[in-house]
Each structure stands twice: as C-alpha cells, then as structure tokens.
C-alpha cells in the first residue's frame, strides 16, 4: 500500500525546486499525467476481468431471480420471480444435506492433503539425491496427468470384476477381495473420490512445501540440535515458523479447490450413480441446473455457493494482508 503514491511523492518533492507561477502549468499537467499512468496500466486488466468475469456474473445473478426452465429457454425470455428460487433452494433439505456433506468432505480432503503433503516434503529433504529425483519426477508426472484420464485409470484399477486392485490385494493375501465393490456405499464412494483428489493434490503441496523448506536456515537447525532440542522441538520452533505462510496459502487454496470439486466426483461415482445421498456441491448444481433444465434455480444455488467461497476467500485475503504487514 505504501508504495503506490510514490510518483506523486516524487512530483511533490520536485516542486520546491521550481520557482515562479509560469513554470507551474507544465508541472501540473505532468502531475496529472503521472497520476493517470497507473490507472491506464491496470485498465486492460480491469476491462478484461469485467468482460470475462463481470458480465457472466451479472447474468448469473439476474438469472437467479428468474424462472428459467426449458420453456423459457425456448422463448428466450425468463419470468421475474424475485426470491422464489432462493426460497425454494434454502427450503430444500437436499441443499443443506449437500452443504454439510461438502463441508465435511472438504475438511477431510484438506486435512489429509496437508498432513501427508508436509510429511512427504520433510521426507524429501532427508532423501539422497537419486531417490529425491525419482520421487520428484513421480510427483510431477502425477501432477501433469489430466484429471479425466486419471479418473478413467482409477475406474479401471478399482473395477469390480477385472480390477487390478482386487486382484493384487487377493494375491498378496491381504484378504478375499474377489469382486469387492469399492463403490458399494455412499461412504465408500466418497472415500474413493477423496483418495483420488488427495493423490492429485499432493504433488503441488509437496513441491511447494519442499521449496519452502529450502528457506529454513541450516545454521539455525544445527544450532538448535547442538543446544539439545528434540527433532519435534526443532520442527515446532525453527521449521514451522518459516513454513507458516506457505502452509497458510496452500490450506486456503485447497479449501477453495476441494469445496468446488466436480470432475472427480461426477466421473468417478458415475452419471448413473450420483444421487441425493452422495451429491457434492458441484454435482448438485450440475444436476439441478442442467439435468433438470432449471437454469434459474441452478443459478440461485451457484450464487449461494459463490457467497460461501467468497467468504472463505475474504478470510484468506485478510490473513495474507496481515501477514505481509507483520513481515
């Protein structure tokens, strides 16, 4: 914040050097010009954001106040119904069930991602170079795999009849997994989605944290261990404070990502198996809006969802700003 008025400060500082009213005008012009430059520079971005984000958002909000189903789509004219869509959504227990389910799902996914990610990053630091390169390569490969392809591979691996997972578990003598159904219950369906998401999210978290760990001063670590600190103590008092901002960003981003998950949940559970018992927010909006061709109601759910994500983001941005100030 403190850096933005800099050009003006410079202009003001230059003023006392000039004498006489006649020389003031060009200076004022220059002052106006230099004040406008930053705005001109951000203008393209603002216009682009307004066009690609602002306009759809405006349409979304107006849509949420209209009855807009298939007949209206064909007539290309919605009917204003005020808060009817919101009333209907908020009065629908499916919405609340889905919201609670999505929050629990997000909490579990984020916790697993962050804990496993941190452990793997700490492991990465302690590994010998060849093993570290191997592990890093594996992580990058997992990260670069397109989601839809990954889902398909998971579907094959966990297939009821011919899946390699059932075969391997049975062959290794873990138990009788012949024709084990990994998608038998709502819990197991969502657990499979969780596994897939955590697997997909880990590379980014591990590599970011690993980069952060390289910022921990080695001499501090050495000094701490010479002073007789246990490894837990070293982690808590030396490593953790350095990692804190990165952990914070990653957790916040993961919450936002996992809250809005659609692709993995819809494809892994499958179009023929998603139902009110296993909806996550993304799937729910898709079925209500598109499956039922009730675009107005779908828009209302999206607006509510957007507000929830915005709340999460405000929290995150405030924390970030505060951290920057204290730094």
């Amino acid at each position: 914040m403190s850096r933005r008025p800099a050009p003006q400060v410079a202009a003001v500082a230059a003023e006392p050097l000039t004498l006489g009213a006649r020389q003031r005008r060009p200076l004022t012009l220059r002052r106006v010009g230099s004040a406008a430059v930053p705005y001109l520079l951000v203008a393209p971005v603002v216009i682009a954001i307004a066009a690609v984000l602002g306009y759809p958002l405006y349409k979304l909000v107006t849509l949420s106040f209209q009855r807009y189903g298939l007949p209206e789509l064909i007539q290309r004219k919605g009917e204003w119904v005020g808060l009817d869509n919101f009333r209907s959504v908020l009065g629908d227990e499916v919405f609340w069930d889905t919201l609670v389910r999505t929050i629990v799902f997000t909490a579990v996914n984020v916790a697993l991602t962050m804990v496993l990610g941190l452990l793997l990053a700490l492991l990465l630091v302690r590994l010998s170079t060849p093993v570290r390169v191997l592990l890093t390569t594996g992580l990058v490969l997992a990260w670069s795999m397109p989601v839809v392809v990954a889902v398909q591979v998971w579907i094959w691996m966990t297939n009821f009849q011919n899946g390699i997972l059932n075969y391997t578990l049975t062959t290794l003598g873990v138990g009788d997994y012949f024709q084990h159904d990994w998608y038998a219950t709502t819990f197991s369906k969502l657990a499979m989605v969780t596994l897939l998401i955590v697997w997909g999210a880990l590379p980014f978290v591990v590599l970011s944290l690993y980069a952060g760990l390289s910022q921990v001063p080695r001499e501090l670590l050495e000094a701490a261990s010479i002073d007789g600190a246990s490894s837990w103590r070293v982690f808590r008092d030396v490593t953790y404070p350095v990692l804190k901002p990165i952990l914070y960003i990653l957790t916040s981003l993961s919450i936002i990502w996992d809250f809005g998950v659609f692709t993995q949940a819809y494809l892994l559970i499958g179009a023929s198996q998603v139902n009110v018992d296993n909806y996550l927010m993304g799937v729910y909006v898709f079925i209500e809006g598109y499956g039922h061709s009730d675009f107005g109601r779908g828009a209302a759910i999206s607006v509510l969802w957007l507000l929830i994500v915005a709340l999460l983001s405000v929290f995150y941005v405030r924390k970030m700003v505060r951290m920057e100030e204290t730094a």
Binding site: P56, K59, L60, L63, I256, W257, D258, F259, G260, V261, F262, T263, M281, G282, V285, F286, G289, Y290, F295, G298, A299, S302, W305, L306, V309
Partner: peptide, 13 residues
C-alpha cells in the same frame, strides 16, 4: 476446480 461449477454456469449463460 472452483471454477468448474462456475464455468458450467458461465457456459449456460
């Protein structure tokens, strides 16, 4: 991911 759902809506729009 976050944008997934929103993108769908945007596509509808």
């Amino acid at each position: 991911r976050i944008i997934g759902g929103l993108a769908l809506v945007a596509a509808a729009l």
